[in-house]
């Protein structure tokens, strides 16, 4: 009978903690860039220039209907081919941003389309500029409407970072794989980091809940 032995975890806890920081870093960078791609993509998706709309739509469909693992491998080989020699971690962030961005475009678009036309017309009538109308009348209320969907997508992105271990980006799963390879304590290692991931996703969720309380607590009526 196999005896569980967690001593190797305690011994190499610093590596795991360092790996968790790597995971948080990948997730934070990926989310930020995904949000930027999301907003930019919606602007393109709504533009009067047909090619911009078509390209954005094709991008969203292509990314949402292929596995992240294949995307990250493709990027991992495509970037050097284009003359860009980046670290695995940077490559991973770009992959996360592209993947998360495609989902963000769809989510944000849903929110923007839910804003009634009368709202923007009223904004223009009050003398706001195009940029002001987009920022205050469309984007902010839209963000509030889609906030729950966006947060669950971001938690998904946080969990997706574990796949970045396949191109040896520095994060929790990669750290765990190295400990597993040295100690052969597979089940102990993976049980522990599964718990750590639970903690991380709880942390991310709590953080977004506090952001919501701070920035969306103005009255609507």
């Amino acid at each position: 009978m196999y005896k569980l032995d967690f001593s190797v975890i305690l011994e190499r806890l610093p590596e795991l903690l360092w790996g968790s920081l790597g995971t948080l870093y990948l997730a934070a960078a990926g989310m930020t860039l995904a949000l930027i791609i999301g907003v930019a993509g919606v602007v393109m998706r709504q533009s009067h220039f047909a090619p911009a709309r078509i390209i954005t739509k094709a991008f969203v469909e292509l990314i949402r209907n292929t596995p992240f693992l294949v995307q990250i491998f493709f990027l991992f080989f495509a970037l050097p081919f284009m003359g860009l020699r980046l670290s695995p971690t940077t490559t991973a962030i770009i992959a996360l941003a592209i993947n998360g961005g495609a989902y963000a475009i769809e989510i944000i678009r849903g929110g923007v389309e839910s804003i009634h036309r009368g709202q923007t017309e009223a904004g223009f009538a009050l003398g706001l500029s195009k940029a002001q109308v987009f920022r205050f009348i469309i984007l902010k209320p839209a963000l509030r409407t889609i906030y729950p969907a966006l947060v669950s997508q971001f938690i998904m992105l946080t969990l997706t970072t574990s796949i970045c271990s396949s191109i040896s980006a520095m994060e929790l799963t990669f750290a765990a794989q190295q400990i597993d390879a040295d100690s052969f304590r597979s089940i102990e290692v993976y049980l522990t980091i599964t718990g750590m991931y639970l903690l991380i996703s709880w942390l991310v969720m709590t953080m977004f809940a506090s952001i919501a309380r701070l920035s969306f607590s103005y009255p609507t009526k």
Binding site: Y2, I155, L159, T160, T161, S162, I163, S165, T173, S186, I187, Y190, L191, I193, T194, Y197, L198, S201, W202
Partner: peptide, 21 residues
């Protein structure tokens, strides 16, 4: 909550090595 809060890759590893035990 456990399945939604952990990466699919970890679920695979844990079940894979867990069944191996």
């Amino acid at each position: 909550a456990v399945f939604q809060g952990t990466p699919l890759l970890m679920q695979l590893f844990v079940v894979y090595y867990g069944i191996g035990l």
